[in-house]
Design a protein around this nucleic acid. Structure first.
Lengths: 206, 206, 206, 206
DNA sequence: CATGAATGAGGATTCATTCAT
DNA sequence: CATGAATGAATCCTCATTCAT
């Protein structure tokens, strides 16, 4: 469908820039990603970038904003669903892994450039950092309903998110130029097992 | 005046610079940490920095090197000890958390600037990134001895390290200017529980 | 306001910088010619210089390029002309001397900064160094047509070029701040005589 | 013979530095020749260099001074000899060429770094530049005695010196890393011929 | 809105020179 | 005299940002 309205057109350019920025930043890191090069990659003039973003940092923040919103709406959908909490967490992991397979560069940026969360201007990076809190609710609900043992949901949400991101980081480092291994399936399984059984040998099991 | 020994003096200056760099990088991020400011903080001239480090990047790499060596010798000691694997992992977490309490700025740097591991020159950052592999051995040993259930030790080491680092990151973000909460004790407990029992309510438990 | 044409405008700025560079380099030598000062002399910002030249060295190379091309086209015209070889050489000298009177600073640069010909990047300085070879052809032709006695044209071209440049250097050193003496006419005459008669007293002449 | 006196010892160190400087400057040019590297090459500490030379430039000037004095005493000897002027000039050329074969690096420095003659501090470089004037006397004497035709001796001395240096420069550029070709013999012959016969075909010669 | 030349503050790095030992 | 660590001014170059067209 053709989107002719002004806003739609605007968004197309902004999208071009956002996507170019993801690639350039993934390749060079945010600081080494010159605005000129981002513009060039987007097939656009430098000045044009500054029609859509006030400062270079805003580009990065916008990248996080888009992903943040994607995740928020995903999590909202998820919460409504009727599955158990472990299954939900499994789906969250699944979502992250498959997003990463779709766009490894994006994952690279999301994982590497979070350092800016401390800066006050980067409101969406900061928000992104608060996403684990969303898992907290799922865990809390699981506890309330008796599916999950008593625990500190906030801490556990951090633990789970950290684990997921560490897995992604590992695979990024190992697959710099190649295809993402399907080791993700193994990772998924291991995480599920950890949550279900812990890591310790139960008495009476082989 | 007594000059302890040439090598000692050299190390003192290099130490001054290293410590100053940790603070300045923690506050501004590596890229915004001007060498001039690091030198000033160290009470030293710019040129002096370049007597000890060839390039700015080498300062960062050296920071990782020192910490890497600390951790390696810690892990070597740990392996020799006679405790069970879960207890060992607990000690690793404990070590990280207490290191962090001692020097939060250092933790900030270690957590935030790992992105450079992809650069070839940063050999110690790269090595640092491979530390989780050390946990792998502990897990493997646990499996072999029957203390830990069958699993993929490599993946699980990544999961555990990721969890620990996420916890540290969270507390850094929340305690930018303040004292580190003793929430670490809770975190420690929760991690231990996760490893021992998983997250799921066992049938027959309340 | 009428914008002659994009390319024209570009050339104007590049010309400004080139001319400023000639003066600053002539006064201080290439190494002591700070890019900032060249920019200031050109009435332009530092950054602008780097819009037209990738590196400082490229400015110097460009100065040689422009002069090289001037000389090549002059020599091509000259070859076509119907005059004898000695007359042609005389015209070459004349051209050099009058160019030098027009812009002594330029001559200063051309004579003093050739040392860079050894660097691989300075392709035009290297080419400039090969200009004497053009005289070689003229001499060779003279030999072929019987106007010039048997000799090694390559060596002689070097000798002639060297002589011309030494003369120019001498006058530059003697006329740092003043007008170029018209001693050039004498020099021209002496060179012509040398070529025609040698330096030795012929038997039977007074 | 062992030279134990203070001055002798001093000179040995100064000589070490001078020779090292010649090599380092020949390889990198004067500006890229760091005093550290000169000192290192001489097997001496930086500070030691400054015990013998006040400023870096003084090292270069000293190199020229030594060579200047060598040439002056050579020319004084030469003047006393009973040979004809052309033969004397031939010997001057011969001296330059063979000096150059002995130490190409030195020749490189002498030819490339004369640009500093304009600076007031470099008194010996300036003096070196005035050496051609010594040939002037030889020519003048030749004219007076009837061996050389009437001419402007000053101009001709410049011409001859320029020719010689151009030949040396050419061979340096062509023999950067290799042995100096024996083309010098040819050059010597051609110069002699030029001086004796000029370049023009005499009527009645083949 | 699009363009991209111009800007100049900022930062990494070098290196001549000093001076305490 | 010898040493070489320390100094910091000086310089090249980058790049975010502006603005006239």
């Amino acid at each position: 469908m053709i989107n002719i309205c002004r806003e739609g057109v605007v968004k197309i350019k902004k999208e071009l820039i956002r996507k170019a920025a993801i690639d350039v930043i993934a390749e060079n890191g945010f600081f080494n990603a010159a605005v000129d090069r981002i513009a060039a990659r987007a097939g656009v003039a430098v000045g044009t970038v500054y029609n859509y973003f006030e400062k270079k940092e805003d580009i990065l923040d916008y990248i996080f904003q888009v992903e943040y919103e994607k995740r928020v709406s995903f999590l909202e959908d998820l919460k409504k669903r009727d599955t158990g909490p472990v299954e939900k967490i499994r789906e969250i992991m699944n979502m992250h892994f498959s997003e990463m397979k779709k766009n490894p560069n994006l994952a690279r940026v999301l994982l590497r450039e979070r350092g800016f969360a401390e800066q006050d201007k980067m409101i969406h990076i900061k928000k992104f950092e608060e996403l684990p809190a969303q898992i907290k609710d799922i865990i809390q609900e699981g506890v309330d309903k008796g599916f999950i043992r008593k625990c500190n949901p906030e801490i556990l949400s951090v633990i789970i998110f950290g684990a997921v991101e560490a897995l992604m980081t590992k695979f990024i480092l190992e697959n710099k130029n190649g295809e993402i291994s399907d080791i993700f399936d193994v990772a998924l399984e291991e995480m599920s097992n950890l949550l279900e059984k812990g890591l310790v040998q139960s008495p009476g099991e082989s």
